[in-house]
Design a protein around this nucleic acid. Sequence first.
DNA 1: TGGTGTATAATTGTATACATAAAAACAAGG
DNA 2: CCTTGTTTTTATGTATACAATTATACACCA
Lengths: 215, 215
Amino acid sequence: MLEHRTISLAEQVFDRLETDILSGKYAHGEVLTELKLVSDLGVSRTPIREALRRLEQEHIIEISQKGIIVIGVSKKDLKDILEIRIRIEGLAAAEAAKNITDEQLEELREAVELQEFYVPKHDADRINGMDSKFHQLIYRFSGSTALFDALMPLHKKVLKYRKASVENEIRSAYSSQEHRAIFEAIAAHDAPLAEQRMRDHIANAKAYIEEREGV
Amino acid sequence: MLEHRTISLAEQVFDRLETDILSGKYAHGEVLTELKLVSDLGVSRTPIREALRRLEQEHIIEISQKGIIVIGVSKKDLKDILEIRIRIEGLAAAEAAKNITDEQLEELREAVELQEFYVPKHDADRINGMDSKFHQLIYRFSGSTALFDALMPLHKKVLKYRKASVENEIRSAYSSQEHRAIFEAIAAHDAPLAEQRMRDHIANAKAYIEEREGV
DNA sequence: TGGTGTATAATTGTATACATAAAAACAAGG
DNA sequence: CCTTGTTTTTATGTATACAATTATACACCA
């Protein structure tokens, strides 16, 4: 396992396993063992176990005597997650509109504009990356740890399904425009407008994803 | 550390530390070390570290080279948490109204009635216990893992502040009545009514707590 | 053939030894 | 007296050895 800066092996293992599970690299029901992960990742059981405990807490794996069972995110989960995000992600945008600094605003602007840059190029991975970054920055700039902690795991769990959205040119273009509109409301420090636009944005994403996934 | 049934030491350590931190037993800013916990709890560093990782993920501790810094729940956190719960806990009640089974309904009824039993006796600990149980059962009976995962940590983090509410006779009696009303709506499988009553209940609790805490 | 008990193997659970990095103590020099 | 460089201590990070539990394979018997 390469790259060992200041970030601990336990953290790296967590990030990697979380991404692999949420991206669908491991299938639902697949059984892993700590020993298999030891040989795959090239680290000892200690950091692996610490990562597994956190993944278990997020309910994307289950640990039993048989091994580590991959759970992932079901379509029912997806439905529930988007329903929750419709109700609280607007709050994050509203709080960000109230609290954001000029410097943070520039960081947010960059995410919006890079996404706009990649959309006509159909670079799905980078679009997805900027899309994620936009939402996560808003969680952070809301200034609420509670909102951040509630929204971040929900957002990460949509990864696999968001990827598909981004590959659709029409939805991808609309989504980028919606981000721009939310950004403008936040930049104007108009909390109610930011809240409404974010709520609509999640509702649109939900409608698209659910139609696509057939739920 | 006594009692080692089927539940692992790591889990026991997590529960104990979480309760101690959220109840205010450890003060904000207090610094612990793994070694201190080893001697206090009588278990090795391994299960302690696994518990600490989970507590760190919940943002109620921070781990640094200086040791383990207790963070806990600030009044700002409390405000943010209740604002979130107002927006999504009604959804949990609505889903429970749709999905609850007769057997689960009886379990919920028991929590309501035991709370009603303890209120006139001013048994704060047991009232608090039944109050918590009522909400947590609804999270479970909502049938949504996402709602459960979002709401459970928020609910647990109010522990310290809820305790004070429960010691007030007037608020405690109202709260118990509100639980009864929510229960009746769920028992009637009236999702919109359950949602509205739960939202009002959280809003009332928020108003009381915030007035009391002076935020 | 089916079930049951037992032996075996495989897995997680826990403790501990060692590595590493940062903080703290301290001494020297300006 | 303050600053700075060095040493020492103290903390977490990681690997590994050992324990305990559970799943599995298999032989035996009804």
